[in-house]
């Protein structure tokens, strides 16, 4: 099912209070950094929802 990121709310690493907390939290490699932005790799997502719960901007939701 994976997750989706609302680009209007996401801090895109540079403006994220924790510089990409979701990337740091996800140990499955389902959220990665690419070209300075956040990218979702749906096939790696295990639906643990840690990113949804902890995103400081509440930009992540179920896809």
């Amino acid at each position: 099912m994976a997750v989706k990121i609302d680009p209007d709310v996401c801090g895109h690493i540079a403006n994220c209070p924790v510089q990409g907390l979701c990337i740091k939290l996800c140990e499955q490699g389902a959220i990665i950094e690419e070209d300075g932005d956040v990218k979702i790799v749906p096939e790696n997502c295990d639906d643990c929802d840690l990113c949804i719960q902890n995103c400081p901007n509440q930009a992540i939701s179920k896809a």
Binding site: V18, L21, K24, L25, L50, Q53, N54, P56
Partner: peptide
């Protein structure tokens, strides 16, 4: 606060 990121030393 965000207890998981704090516990993991991310914040």
């Amino acid at each position: 606060g965000p207890i998981v990121p704090i516990a993991r030393g991310l914040i």
